[in-house]
């Protein structure tokens, strides 16, 4: 999933300060799963904003909505009946959702209420960690299903660096050493010999380095 974290309230307040009435839009997908911008968080942020402005003696009218998927034009269309009644939109979706709104409603200012972080997975309740950088040419088949691009601090394709202690990364003891995980996993699979295979320097073209990316499926494109 795409993970996100809510922005500091003070930053959000500055975005919406000039407006009298805003639409606060959440998303039912990734940001709901990582508890950053679903229906519940929309409600919480709405109350927090209203309280903050009330303290200043200012009224902010907030209309709350949560779309099924904010990165999908079909669902963003649902805002069309409400958009004219507000001065601005505050989005709790990831950057994709915010941009979808900006593209569809060109004359309405839209602001992000969350910081989009990474593509990751839930480790346990309340903890998410990075798993993939969308490099466009997946190496997981060579590394036992553990990604060195996203998970090794030095992005070593031929690790380890030798600095890990007790399975933790030398750069950040909070995270597991990706190459320890790769080794453990290859061993579990009985593929230790794979470890000595040299992974060649990566071709970064399929990644963002080749420019902003787009997928066109001729069989589906209309």
């Amino acid at each position: 999933m795409i993970t996100a974290e809510r922005k500091p309230l003070e930053e959000i307040i500055e975005y919406v300060r000039p407006f009298g009435k805003i639409l606060l839009v959440g998303c039912n997908e990734c940001v709901t799963v990582c508890s950053a911008g679903g229906r519940k968080e929309v409600g919480l942020l709405s109350s927090a904003l209203q309280m903050a402005f009330m303290k200043e003696g200012k009224m902010l009218e907030i209309k709350e909505m949560t779309l099924e998927r904010q990165c999908d034009p079909e669902y963003v269309e649902e805002l069309s009946g409400h958009i004219n009644q507000v001065d601005a939109v505050l989005s709790m979706a990831c950057g994709c959702g915010v941009q979808e709104i900006a593209q569809r409603y060109r004359e309405k200012p839209v602001f992000p209420a969350v910081n989009t972080k990474f593509m990751g997975a839930s480790e346990r309740q309340g903890v998410w960690s990075e798993r993939c950088q969308g490099c466009g040419n997946c190496l997981l088949g060579l590394t036992g299903g553990i990604c060195p691009v996203a998970r090794c601090s030095k992005r070593l394709l031929n690790g380890p660096c030798g600095g890990s202690t007790k399975g933790k990364c030398e750069i950040n003891p909070e995270i597991d050493c990706a190459w320890q995980l790769i080794w453990d996993r290859l061993k579990a699979l009985g593929q230790e010999e794979r470890y000595s295979d040299i992974i060649p320097a990566k071709d970064w073209r399929p990644s963002r380095d080749g420019g902003p990316r787009k997928i066109i499926r001729e069989d589906l494109a209309s």
Binding site: A201, K202, D203, W204, R205, S207, R208, D209, G210, G211
Partner: peptide, 11 residues
């Protein structure tokens, strides 16, 4: 990078 001779390089 795409117009150079090391198109696979990281930007």
């Amino acid at each position: 990078m795409a117009s150079g001779d090391h198109t696979d390089a990281r930007v």
